[in-house]
Amino acid sequence: TTVKVNGTKYKFDTPEEAQKFAKKAADKYNLKVVVDGDDLRVE
């Protein structure tokens, strides 16, 4: 599972880890998590 934040992709072994990271990033930058198929985007 990958998470894309500000054009940078981060790869995670499990969707749970990816979800946690995406949520933290979204909170930090005051953005929202967008599900894109198997991957997540923070925008």
Rank of each mutant, 00 (worst) to 15 (best):
Val33Asp: 02
Lys32Gln: 12
Asn30Ser: 07
Val5Ile: 15
Lys20Pro: 00
Tyr10Phe: 10
Gly37His: 05
Thr1Phe: 15
Asn30Phe: 09
Glu16Cys: 03
Asp38Asn: 13
Lys28Met: 14
Val33Trp: 05
Val35Arg: 10
Tyr10Trp: 07
Ala18Thr: 01
Lys9Pro: 09
Val35Gly: 07
Tyr29Ile: 05
Lys32His: 11
Asp38Cys: 07
Val5Lys: 00
Asn6Met: 13
Lys32Leu: 13
Asp27Lys: 12
Lys9Trp: 12
Tyr29Asp: 06
Val5Asn: 00
Leu31Met: 13
Tyr10Ile: 06
Lys4Leu: 15
Thr8Tyr: 13
Lys4Glu: 13
Phe21His: 02
Lys4Asn: 12
Val3Glu: 00
Tyr29Val: 04
Asp13Pro: 10
Lys23Thr: 08
Thr8Gln: 13
Thr8Arg: 15
Ala22Thr: 00
Asp38Leu: 13
Lys23Gln: 14
Lys32Ser: 13
Lys28Pro: 03
Ala25Tyr: 15
Lys9Tyr: 13
Val5Arg: 00
Asp39Asn: 11
Lys32Val: 15
Gln19Gly: 07
Asp39Ala: 10
Val3Pro: 01
Val34Lys: 06
Pro15Asp: 05
Val35Met: 11
Thr2Trp: 13
Lys23Ala: 10
Leu40Val: 06
Asp36Pro: 02
Glu43Ser: 08
Val42Tyr: 03
Leu31Ala: 13
Tyr29Glu: 06
Thr8Asn: 10
Asp27Cys: 13
Val3Ile: 03
Asp38Gln: 12
Leu31Ser: 10
Thr1Gly: 04
Gly37Cys: 04
Tyr10His: 06
Phe12Thr: 00
Thr2Leu: 08
Tyr10Met: 03
Arg41Asp: 03
Lys28Glu: 10
Pro15Leu: 14
Ala25Trp: 15
Lys24Ser: 13
Lys24Val: 10
Ala22Arg: 01
Lys23Pro: 01
Leu31Asn: 05
Tyr29Trp: 11
Asp36Lys: 04
Ala26Tyr: 03
Asn6Phe: 15
Lys9Arg: 12
Asp38His: 10
Lys28Asp: 10
Tyr10Gln: 01
Thr8Ile: 14
Lys20Arg: 13
Thr1Ala: 06
Leu31His: 09
Asp36Tyr: 08
Asp39His: 11
Ala22Asn: 00
Gly7Phe: 05
Asn6Ala: 09
Phe12Gly: 00
Lys4Val: 15
Leu31Phe: 08
Gly37Arg: 04
Val34Tyr: 10
Lys24Pro: 00
Glu17Phe: 03
Val3Phe: 00
Glu16Val: 06
Phe12Lys: 00
Phe21Lys: 01
Asp39Pro: 02
Lys28Ala: 09
Lys20Trp: 10
